[in-house]
């Protein structure tokens, strides 16, 4: 029983990471209508930057903030340089550019920081808490995730800039007419996504260890979470992300074994699409062809 409870709590902790990436997917989708496939790879790259800074003697939280800032700038830059020229091209072109980005960033990461698996420090007291139910890092990373989710929600809901970003995505022409700089809103969205990705990367790295393909599975779990919760519902995406974390951990322990964990993401995605395509909390769109 204690083992079961531990698996559930560990699932919630990893679920927090999926939730933040799922939220990034949904929010950024709402703000830019892009789903960046290279998000995971970019986050891994950012995590390596953080590790480099920490190894250079920076205090952890300073390195954390610096990494988030650097990632934000990189995200903005990528939008300006790569996405802007193809803004009006087809979705296929976008997917192509994303795939190109995945190839470039993941190989660049391996090239610059080499392919060996590296341990990553945790800023939290790393020992069992609550009688061994949860580790300090799990508790800490869940808290960080929740704070980030809250901040992102407040930003989009209550600030002028957040409103402008939503407007730019919802109706670019009208947004431009009332003075929103639509192009820069997209760039900001990319920057935000990269920053959130960096935070997720730093929080997950102490658990899974740092290597160039660290985030590959995480993006898929996050996507499964976003679909489960409802792809157009930020709150749903968060709950979906947590749920996928728990399902993954329980399924991996009791049903399919660790070898088939990634397949679980696929099963969830296809299952949701077949049974309830709008997700648990999504709006049912009647016809969109």
């Amino acid at each position: 029983m204690n083992g079961f409870l531990h698996q559930v709590i560990a699932g919630i902790a990893t679920g927090g990471i999926y939730a933040s990436v799922a939220l990034a997917l949904v929010m950024i989708y709402q703000a830019t209508h892009h789903v960046n496939f290279a998000q995971g790879e970019m986050a891994t790259f950012s995590t390596y930057i953080a590790l480099t800074l920490v190894n250079a003697g920076w205090p952890f939280w300073l390195a954390f903030l610096a990494t988030v800032a650097i990632s934000f700038c990189l995200g903005v830059m990528i939008e300006r340089v790569l996405m802007r020229p193809v803004a009006n091209a087809s979705v296929l072109t976008h997917v192509g550019v994303f795939i190109g980005l995945v190839l470039v960033v993941s190989n660049l990461t391996g090239w610059v920081f080499d392919y060996t698996v590296k341990p990553f420090p945790t800023p939290f007291h790393d020992g069992p808490l609550l009688g061994g139910l949860i580790s300090g890092h799990e508790l800490g990373s869940t808290a960080v995730t929740l704070v980030v989710l809250g901040l992102v929600f407040l930003f989009f809901r209550y600030t002028r800039l957040g409103l402008a970003m939503r407007a730019a995505a919802y109706n670019p022409a009208s947004a431009r007419l009332v003075g929103v700089r639509v192009g820069w809103m997209l760039a900001l969205g990319w920057g935000l996504a990269a920053a959130i990705g960096a935070i997720a990367g730093i929080m997950v790295a102490p658990v899974v260890f740092l290597e160039p393909n660290m985030m590959l599975g995480i993006l898929l779990y996050a996507f499964a979470g976003a679909l489960l919760g409802g792809i157009d519902n930020p709150g749903g995406a968060v709950i979906g992300g947590f749920a996928v974390g728990v399902i993954e951990n329980l399924g991996g322990t009791y049903i399919v074994g660790t070898e088939l964990k990634l397949t679980l993401a696929l099963v969830i995605i296809i299952g949701v699409l077949l049974v309830r395509p709008a997700g648990l909390f999504g709006r049912v769109v009647l016809s969109r062809v």
Binding site: L82, P85, V86, A89, T93, G96, V97, I99, G100, L101, V102, L103, V104, S106, N107, L108, G110, W111
Partner: peptide
């Protein structure tokens, strides 16, 4: 050291120059 980087760059270059 990085054939994958070249590969990705070729892909992006094709999309930009020769869609």
């Amino acid at each position: 050291s990085a054939p994958g980087v070249i590969y990705g760059c070729i892909l992006i270059a094709f999309l930009f120059v020769l869609p």
